[in-house]
Write a protein that binds this DNA or RNA. Structure first.
Lengths: 201, 201
DNA sequence: AATCTAACTTAACAGTGTTAATATTATATC
DNA sequence: GATATAATATTAACACTGTTAAGTTAGATT
């Protein structure tokens, strides 16, 4: 009697439907400007149905962000296979990180700026996707230090310095699109290059 | 006939009163969670009175941010008198920038993250306070390059790299207070030091 | 066929930013 | 001092918001 299974599948399907609709609206119109009613309209259910699948609007945001982090993680992990120089791999990772942020600017802001605002005290949950992303960074950095290509500094600090740099340039480019930046790719390159050179010194 | 002057002064006074109340509420409860009615209650006027002094809520935010930028500018300009090494002055400026952000985290986010979200296409207005702040950075950087203490790179890019670094670490520290950062001051120092070393190389 | 349960909807609450029309107050003129 | 005029402030309303509690419907189990 596969009824239960079918029902469970249908339930999961609707959950995904909600998630997809929410992401699309959040990304296109901004988290603040999306109402539960708008999401409900899009999926052609009543607004309150959403509350059967998600605790509240913040929980919906949380789930959307989790997906974003998974996407980011996938993007980064693909660089692992690249068997080139460890510093070069790190450079590429930084580049991929910023590119990801600029490719999905609203997703990036949702995850790294909006969410912490609504979900306070957001650390690195044990086993969370966020932790996995940062672990990736730890690995990359660790290799550079062990191979003495970087100054002998603790992995944590080194990683955090790199994260600061890429996070900073990503957000500035997203938030101030009208600012007279030097050519975008050049700026990104220079930020990453400068930081890496600084970590060697 | 000083009546007009007095009236103008009174008007300015109420404007300031609104601004002070708005800043306090924005900072303590977050822009989103502050309603015009709340601000009105605080100053003991009806909500619609605010609209006689500010176009809308975003305009109110704008004015609050302008003040924040003025504060930041003042903080930075005080370092100008410091007649030490140009690189050292730049380092101190970076430190002061991050410290400012961490001292008034909500003001910083309001100005550099929330405002651009509500006031899109925000560039560097001619004569704006924001422009003055960035001009300060240009000056500092320019000196370092001219004195050949930095690699010969254009002032714009160099400045933007520095801004990325300090902006990044400031926001990360604000947004993820529960993240297992290395000791805060050490991290800030290292970010700035690393970036500067990278700019020398 | 009766009961139970899961899925979904309706109606409502207390709140939001903002506008238009109205009322109040203070000044200037006669 | 009374009156017209301008500046300032308020009331009432509109169309929204997130969320909860109660009610409805359809399908599965007994």
């Amino acid at each position: 009697m596969g009824t239960k299974e079918r029902r469970a599948r249908e339930k999961e399907q609707l959950r995904r439907q909600i998630l997809v609709a929410a992401r699309e609206l959040f990304v296109n119109e901004g988290y603040e400007n999306v109402s539960m009613r708008k999401i409900a309209n899009k999926i052609e259910y009543s607004p309150t149905t959403i509350y059967l699948y998600f605790k509240d609007k913040a929980d919906l945001l949380d789930s959307v962000c989790k997906e974003t982090l998974l996407n980011l993680l996938n993007t980064l992990e693909q660089l692992k296979n690249d068997k080139s120089d460890s510093v070069e791999t790190l450079r590429k990772s930084g580049q991929a990180y910023v590119e990801f942020g600029l490719k999905y600017p609203q997703d990036y802001k949702l995850t790294f700026v909006i969410r912490p605002q609504f979900q306070k005290g957001l650390g690195l949950q044990e086993g969370s996707v966020g932790e996995k992303v940062f672990n990736y960074l730890r690995e990359m950095v660790s290799e550079c230090i062990q191979q003495k290509k970087f100054r002998q500094m603790d992995v944590e600090t080194t990683g955090q310095v790199l994260w600061s740099a890429v996070h900073g340039v990503t957000l500035l480019l997203i938030d101030f699109p009208e600012f007279p930046w030097t050519e975008k790719d050049k700026l990104i390159d220079t930020v990453i290059h400068t930081t890496i050179e600084g970590l060697k010194a």
